[in-house]
Structure formats: C-alpha cells, structure tokens
Design a protein around this nucleic acid. Structure first.
Length: 764
DNA sequence: GAGCACTGC
C-alpha cells in the first residue's frame, strides 16, 4: 500500500523528454495553502494607527548581535530653492510626516499615488535622513566565520524603464542640490541602468531599473547596501518586478541574519488603486501589525485636471469610421486652445497598421476642410518609428492655426508623454503578446484593454488642463473589462525567470512567493527547456553551465549559443556576439521599406548585406560592414534604412558581451574597430549556425512534401515571415529564433540548416 | 507580404 503510493508520487515527480527522465523532486511540491485572513490593513485602521504616538527606534527587531552605528553628521535639508516652492505644492508634501512615521514602525508601506502626486521624486527625499537609513557596521556569519560588514545607508528606487530612472535621478539631484556625476565625486543622488551608471560617492538615493537590482542581487542577495527599496510603478507588473517582489518578501519575512539583523524597509508604489492583491501578498502570514513584515497602506490623491468621459451609446461597427467621426466632431466643435494652452488630440490604436490607415483617412478628410477652420496635422507614434519621427509628435507646431492629432500605440500610455493633449480617443484595444507554453509559441493579437488601462489612457487628457476622453465603446463594455491587465509573468515564456530564481538560490520554484504564480505546466516546460540547454542537470540542480549562462544579459538560449561558440569545435564567438547584439537590440535593426523610391535605393545597398544562408549571417554581415565603416555611420544606416538607434544599441550590447566573454576567459581581447571587412566564408557560416542550433534546436522546421514547413517540435505548419531574407524560399530545413502567431504561424529570424545538423545538436 | 511596449555588472 505505502509502497505503491510512493511509486505513484515518484511517477508524478519526473518528466520525460525523449529518453531522458528528469526528477522534479523539490520543484513541484505544492505550496501549502495558508492564505492569511488577518493582517491586511484597511484605510480605517491606517488612520487609527497614525494617531498613536510613534514608538521609538526599530531595535526590537534586531538580532542579538551588537549593532555598531557609525554616526555621520546628518546632512542639512539643503536643496535648490527654485524647486522648493514646486515641491511644497505637491499633494504628497503635507503627508511626509505620515510617511516617515509609518516607516519608523512598519517594514512595508504600500503607497497609491496618482499621476502628478510627486511620489517618485519626493518619497526617497523624505526618508534618506531617517535614523534607520544610516549605514551600520554589523557582524554576520559568512562561510562559517563571523565577519563585520556594513549594512544599509542607501535607498534604491526601482523603475521599469531606463529613461524614467535617469530623468528622475537628474530631477532629484537638482532638487537636493548635489551634482549627479560619476563615482569620483560626492553627491546624494545617483542612478544605474544598463550602459549608464552614475553613482557619486556618498549616494543616498539611487534610481535603477528593476533588472539592474535583480542583477545586483546575484552578488548581494541580502541587498546589504540598502536600507530601503522603493518599488515604483509596480502596477505595470513586469516579470522583473514580480521576481523582485518575491525576493523582497523573502527578506522581509525571513530572518535577517544575512543583514546582521538590520531590517529592510520596503515602499511599494502604484499609480492605480487596485492594490488588494499586492497588499495581501506583502501582509505577514501571522497577521503581525508591527515589526517583521507589517504592512501599512496610504493613498495620496493626484494632481490631475478633471477629464470628462464620453462612451458611445451603442457598440461601433467600424472603429476607423468612429475614430474619424470623433475627430471631426472635436475639430469642428471644440476650441483650438484655451487659458491652459493647446487642445490637441491623442488617439490610442492597437498597432501600426491601424495607425497608418487612419492617418490616410484623416488626411483625406482634412484636405477638403473649410479654410476658415484650423488646419490639421497628423503624427503617427509607435515604437519602430525612427526617433526623429517620434520627436515630431512631441514638438509644438510652428503654425498657431493647426491642431495636432497624434495616433499612437500603447507607447503613449506609459513610456512617453505627448504635451498639449486635452482630448483622448480610446479605441479600447491593444496588441498583447501571449505565450503558449504547450506550443512553444507566442501570439501577438489585438485584445480588449483593462479598466485600469482605460483609466490611464483617459488620464492623458488631464495633464495640462481639463480634458475629455472619448471611448469608442459603450459604458457596458467598459464595465465588462477586467480590472487590470494580466501580469507579464502569466503571458510570457518564464524560461529566464526560472533560471534567475535558480541562480539566486531558489530551489523550490513552485514555493517561491509570487503575486501571481504561473501554471505548474509553464514551470515544468521551462525546467525541461533549461535541461535541454544544459543549464540544469537531471535532478533539476543548476549546473556550472547554468551559472555561467546567468552572467550574460541575454535569454538562456542565446547564452547557450555564446558558450557553444567559445568551444574549439565551433570557434566563432566574435561572429555570434555580433549576431546576438543585432537580434537583441530591439524589434528589428532593419526598417521596413515603404515607398517605391525607398525600395529601389535602399534595396540596392542592402543587397550587398543579404546572404543566402539567411537572416543570422545577414545580421553578421551588417554588423561587420557597419563597424568597418570609418566615415559617417549614421548616414550609412540611413542610406540602407537601418534603425540608427537600434544599431547603436547593438554596438553597446556587442561591447558588453565582448567584455563579459573576456572576463569569463572565453576569449582573448578582440581587435579594435574598425577592422577591414571580409565576408564570412561558407565554412565559418556553417559553424556559426551549428553553434546557434545548440540553443535553438527545438526552433527548427523541415520542408514537407507539400512544400510547407513543419516544426520539428510539435509538428505545426509555419511560414517564413515576410521580413526574412528567406521569405518565399524553400529549403530542406530552417532554424528560427522567433515563432509568433499573428495572421498565421510565422518563423522570424530564419536561417538555412540541414536536418542532420538538427539531429546532431539534439543528440550531443 | 508584415511589424504592442519594456528590460539585462
């Protein structure tokens, strides 16, 4: 009886791929369901707590070890007076004592602050002079011996985007009145993002991207240099912020021995009020209201102008038609400006195709416009647009008698702010990327947005004055929308997330605290894939190779390719770095050719970059030509319709990967640019593609007798995407880096391979 | 014959 039970359990704890059996013991132990029912504070109790006299110091949470405090003179509340008046006018200003008081007693503060509340700039300034924020010398157990280390002193503020981290740091450094410069100078404020670090000596407030803090955790799992972590914009729910929240919860709720008993304060900041699940996540299981992990909640009103919301009375059959009608209505009935300034229009559409089509329709209508009415100028705004074209959408128009209409994707919802907008038109849809673990495939399809996204979009009309938001859907449709978007971790391949956890010492992936844990099946698929890549062994333990793979700022398959390329058998590391730099630099370094003229001119020049081996060797040739270019590289890109920004990014990545590979002893110092261009030989190209197969053997397809490509993993029919140089061609077998369902199953970034190579890569 | 948006010592 007991025996058969045991066998059954064992069977459930292994997975098989081919003839390999992987034990999942330790991974798949289900998380005990001990959801706490108490301890999630309400707004009322929060108020009640605030009236209590605050209790002194945090020493009660400290471990018995002696805490040596290094007393530094408290920095005077200096700062630039010209900013002081502005800071005082922020809604947050009057609540600073509340915030300080809360964090003296509690470890976690969840702060909801609407747009314009000033939370991202002010909260760290309110806190950095607090007693608990001083650097302390403490004793910790390290490798069996007691050592003295310093803990705390710095507040980290995480941001989902690089631009936000750097611009906030600039702003706050001006407000406190210290320079934002490199390591060698003194200053209170710094930032750290990929390719750009400015952390002055004595930095107390450090803005960084979420990914950067995760990266720091590889070296410093207890976040010893920090007294507090402020997680900003958590409502965006990137994979990185979800992982970060998990690690923070572990630190808060676990024992603080690794920090010498010094607590870590955490401030979670969200722009949307929908934080119930976040509150529940951070609330201690024992319901404690003080000390270890206790949570407080505070809400700060924003400083927005009112926005009138107008829904359509009936569902609209044709979005584009409704959009045009709404624009006509606004343009003919509403003033061009008022005492607050310009009154321009921002419309949210799902994608480039709808934007371009709508632009044509609007311009056609505007050409027959009554000459007494203001003119119209339409600006498209989406990520793949060259940077100069994007900037045009932000510039004020030279003529005062023209209304600006910006047609944008979701880029205008979070990443950029278009000035002058007082009317928002929301079509209610956005393209969403989703991952199907069972098919190993992504989809990119237009879907209904969430309520919080709709609110966010409407808010864009009230930044500079009272505004209006026209929703091209009914009130009932709005009411039926989900409260918030599905977090990224539930709609993406968690391969990298799982390896990230393993490398940071998480052995039981399913027991790791996550606000929204992915399906066990997704985790299993990721573990299987990591095993195929050699990052974990058959017992699910991270391997030497897995540890090396996390060192690289690329996804595990790319990291595997880098490691393969360094082996003598392949010996093509420099080439592989060039290719990976190109494919991870952005959506695509090649801009799509539009008009006939562009086609012929750029096409002619691109021809010399194109290679019949496929897209990867074409990318390599592009990078080699680009770096051999001595003259004007920007012009070189423009002539070939190559995205200058992405190409520069690719060059940065190339430099970073080269540096890492040298540091890891995988290669000697590479020759300096520019090197004369020599085309890669067919033999070398073969080695490169074979190295790529070590990471992408499962992303291959074989030509079937009916001339369709059938994937070797899953047996789906897949077509070569039109952006590929191999589009329309029939080869024995192909390897691709991306597999996305849009109009149909598409393989992107495609290369010609031989079926024997695939077998070889899978077998070895 | 087609392309939501981010990120990574």
């Amino acid at each position: 009886m007991a025996r058969s039970k045991k066998r059954k359990a064992e069977e459930g704890d292994v997975i098989r791929i081919g003839d390999k059996v992987i034990s999942l013991e330790g991974y798949l132990t289900k998380k005990p369901k001990t959801q706490s029912t108490i301890g999630s504070p309400t707004a009322n109790s929060a108020k009640g707590d605030l009236r209590k006299p605050h209790q002194s110091s945090t020493s009660q949470h400290l471990s018995p070890e002696r805490v040596l405090t290094t007393f530094k003179p408290c920095l005077p509340p200096s700062g630039d007076p010209q900013y002081f008046a502005v800071r005082q006018a922020l809604p947050l200003w009057t609540r600073q004592d509340d915030i300080r008081r809360i964090l003296r007693r509690k470890d976690v503060l969840i702060l909801v602050g609407e747009t314009g509340s000033g939370k991202s700039t002010q909260v760290p300034q309110f806190l950095y002079q607090e007693q608990w924020c001083r650097k302390k010398k403490v004793k910790v157990e390290l490798d069996g011996t007691t050592q003295e280390v310093s803990v705390g002193g710095v507040i980290a503020v995480t941001q989902p985007r690089r631009v936000a981290a750097t611009t906030l740091a600039h702003r706050v450094s001006r407000e406190v009145g210290t320079p934002l410069s490199s390591h060698s100078f003194n200053g209170l404020v710094g930032y750290s993002v990929r390719f750009d670090h400015r952390v002055p000596r004595g930095t107390k407030i450090k803005y960084l991207t979420e990914g950067m803090l995760l990266q720091e955790m590889l070296r410093d799992p207890h976040l010893r240099q920090y007294s507090a972590i402020i997680v900003d914009e958590i409502h965006e729910r990137s994979v990185d912020v979800d992982l970060l929240a998990g690690f923070l919860k572990q630190i808060i709720c676990g024992d603080k021995a690794g920090r010498g008993g010094v607590p870590l304060k955490v401030v979670i900041m969200s722009a949307t009020a929908n934080v119930e699940s976040i509150k529940r996540f951070f609330s201690p299981e024992d319901g404690a209201t003080e000390g270890n992990g206790s949570v407080e909640y505070l809400r700060i009103e924003g400083r927005q102008f009112p926005v009138e919301i107008i829904h359509t009375p009936k569902p609209v059959p044709d979005i584009e038609e409704a959009l045009l009608e709404t624009i006509i209505k606004i343009h003919t009935e509403e003033a061009l400006s008022d005492k607050y300034g310009r009154k321009d229009i921002l419309a949210f559409l799902p994608g480039q195709e709808q934007i371009e089509s709508a632009k044509d329709r609007i311009e056609e209508w505007a050409s027959g416009l009554d000459p007494n009415l203001p003119k119209i100028k339409v600006f498209p705004l989406f990520g793949q647009l060259p940077i100069e074209a994007q900037h045009q959408a932000f510039q004020p128009l030279p003529s005062g008698f023209t209304r600006k209409i910006v047609l944008a994707t979701n880029i205008a919802e979070t990443s950029v702010t278009v000035p002058g907008v007082r009317y928002v038109i929301d079509c209610g849809k956005a393209k969403i990327k989703e991952y199907r673990p069972r098919l190993g495939m992504e989809s990119l399809l237009p879907k209904g947005i969430s309520k919080s996204s709709a609110i966010q979009r409407a808010g864009r009309a009230g930044r500079e004055g009272p505004g209006k938001c026209f929703r091209l859907y009914t009130k009932e449709t709005y009411e039926s929308l989900p409260e918030s978007d599905l977090p990224e971790i539930l709609r993406t391949d968690i391969l990298n997330a799982v390896l990230t956890m393993l490398a940071r010492g998480v052995n039981d992936i399913l027991a790791f605290p996550l606000m929204d844990p992915p399906e066990a099946e997704s985790v299993e698929k990721a573990l299987l894939h990591l095993n195929v890549l050699g990052a974990i062994d058959d017992n699910g333990i991270i391997t030497q190779m897995g540890r090396k793979m996390v060192m690289f700022p690329v996804t595990p398959p790319y990291a595997r390719v880098l490691l393969a390329a360094a082996e003598p058998e392949y010996d093509c590391l420099l080439e592989v770095i060039d290719i990976i730099a190109c494919v991870t630099a952005g959506e695509d370094i090649y801009l799509q050719l539009r008009s006939e003229d562009e086609e012929s001119e750029a096409m002619q020049l691109r021809k010399e970059l194109y290679r019949r081996e496929g897209d990867l060797i074409t990318y390599l040739t592009t990078m080699q030509r680009y770096t051999s270019e001595n003259a004007d590289r920007t012009k070189w890109c423009k002539d070939r319709k190559i995205n200058v920004r992405n190409m520069k990014q690719a060059l940065n990545i190339r430099k970073q990967l080269r540096g890492l590979c040298v540091k890891e002893g995988m290669m000697e110092d590479p020759p300096k640019d520019p090197q004369p261009f020599t085309p890669v030989s067919p033999e070398q190209a073969e080695k490169i593609l074979k190295a790529f197969l070590k990471g992408f053997a499962l992303k291959t397809a074989i030509l079937a007798p009916d001339y369709s490509y059938v994937t070797s993993h899953g047996k789906h029919v897949v077509a070569i995407h039109p952006s590929s140089v191999l589009h329309g061609q029939k080869k024995e077998a192909i390897m691709y880096l991306d597999y996305v369902y849009t109009q149909k199953n598409y393989a992107k970034k495609v290369s010609v391979v031989q079926s024997s190579w695939i077998a070889e890569a899978l077998g070895a």
